[in-house]
């Protein structure tokens, strides 16, 4: 039986926590995108050292559990003078983890730009920096949009792990409410619906971006 009284009491707290979840998702996705773009760029155009750095980063992030990475970052921050910043640690850990996958998504999209287009740009006299900025990256972004959306949805669904370092996102808040009220189904079903709603917004945004960039595809 669903106890509506408990649910209406819990909703404000879950709503506040949802804001934390969204903020964490946005922050981690932004870190993922920036780090992924840099990492893909040095992998493809940074010579042997850039290549090795990027590959090492990708294999480290893909080879260890996000849970462990969270703990490493959280307990690694105080020695460098950053204390009590659970949200920052979570955004960094999730963002850096996702950045490895974003690297691969962007790398594939960049390599998918036909060589002939780069040759045409070269014969026009564009320099490498401009070819990247004006020819390669705009197309790579459009190509990778569906994959990036999928990746950022995974970021959203990774945020409950931040509860281990006491970030009061939705799931952790749910656990707290449940431990006081002993009503698990009301709380966790509500939270599940919350994740679905956030994911829906993310996917809708992405689809509208895709629609607006569709004419740019071949």
């Amino acid at each position: 039986m669903v106890d509506l009284a408990i649910l209406s009491q819990a909703l404000p707290a879950i709503g506040t926590a949802a804001v934390v979840t969204v903020a964490l998702t946005l922050a981690a996705s932004l870190i993922s995108l920036v780090v992924g773009a840099l990492s893909a760029a040095v992998q493809l155009g940074g010579g042997p050292i850039g290549y090795a750095l990027s590959r090492t980063y990708v294999s480290l992030m893909r080879g260890t559990p996000l849970f462990v990475q969270l703990l490493v970052v959280y307990y690694g921050l105080p020695p460098i003078g950053i204390r009590g910043q659970a949200f920052l640690a979570a955004a960094l850990a999730i963002g850096l983890n996702s950045g490895a996958y974003t690297t691969e998504i962007l790398r594939a999209a960049i390599l998918a730009v036909p060589r002939g287009q780069l040759e045409a740009a070269t014969t026009i006299g564009l320099t490498w920096g401009k070819i990247w900025r004006r020819i390669v990256l705009p197309q790579a972004f459009v190509t990778s949009l569906p994959m990036l959306t999928a990746e950022f949805t995974i970021v959203l669904k990774s945020t409950p792990l931040a509860s281990v370092i006491a970030v009061t996102e939705m799931t952790y808040t749910g656990v707290l409410i449940q431990s006081r009220t002993y009503s698990a189904s009301e709380v966790f079903l509500t939270i599940a619906v919350g994740y679905i709603l956030i994911a829906q917004v993310l996917m809708r945004l992405s689809r509208s971006l895709e629609r607006r960039t569709r004419r740019l595809r071949f």
Binding site: G116, A120, T122, T123, I124, G125, I135, P138, R217
Partner: peptide, 22 residues
């Protein structure tokens, strides 16, 4: 930079057009 400048003085048309689709 100088090489790019030289290349800009030679026009090239390819078999597969190579227009920029975006």
């Amino acid at each position: 930079a100088k090489l790019a400048r030289q290349r800009s003085r030679i026009g090239m048309v390819f078999q597969s057009f190579n227009l920029w689709p975006h």
